[in-house]
């Protein structure tokens, strides 16, 4: 077994763990670090339920090897809430009923936050294309898109540019 020591920063906290050379970052997050908020819907990068941000870049954690995380900063759904306050995206998802089963929700939230961090005023079309890699089978995306647009508006008010 080629297990290697991996030092990384997850949601702002330095973390060390042993990971397999061929283990995906998703499996490491879930099985080694017990951060089970990132989900596996496909394991092939098609559904986005495992979305995380690595050094500022949105990626599928199922398509990244755990050892690649060495020295990187990883942000997962577990780090989105600030203290005991929900992020505006999390709150808007709840207020819009933008989730039904909730399985794809962590990935959608992580991806949406990555969008708004980059583009604080996206159009509906931009939201839809940015989120095309986050499959949701329950909602038909309508309320998801509205929640993201409203969260964007809220964030723009909070932090005027």
């Amino acid at each position: 077994m080629s297990r290697v020591r991996i030092s990384t920063i997850v949601n702002g906290e330095p973390v060390e763990f042993l990971g397999g050379g061929g283990q995906s970052l998703l499996d490491a997050l879930r099985d080694e670090l017990r951060l089970t908020g990132s989900k596996e819907g496909c394991g092939t990068g098609d559904c986005g339920a495992c979305s995380v941000v690595v050094d500022g870049r949105l990626v599928c954690s199922c398509l990244m090897l755990a050892p690649e995380a060495e020295g990187k900063r990883i942000e997962t759904i577990e780090g989105m809430q600030e203290g005991s306050e929900l992020h505006p995206l999390q709150r808007q998802f709840l207020e819009h009923a933008a989730l039904q089963c909730g399985f794809c929700t962590p990935g959608l939230l992580v991806a949406s936050k990555a969008l708004l961090d980059r583009n604080p005023d996206p159009s509906e079309t931009e939201v839809r294309y940015w989120l095309a890699g986050n499959m949701c089978r329950c909602t038909g995306y309508d309320k998801v898109v509205r929640a993201v647009l409203d969260a964007a508006a809220e964030l723009r008010q909070e932090r005027p540019r």
């Binding site: 986005g48 870049r57 949105l58 599928c60 990244m64 990555a114 989120l131 890699g133």
Partner: peptide
């Protein structure tokens, strides 16, 4: 090629 996520890689 692929999604936003895939574009990151």
């Amino acid at each position: 090629i692929g999604s936003t996520q895939v574009q990151g890689r």
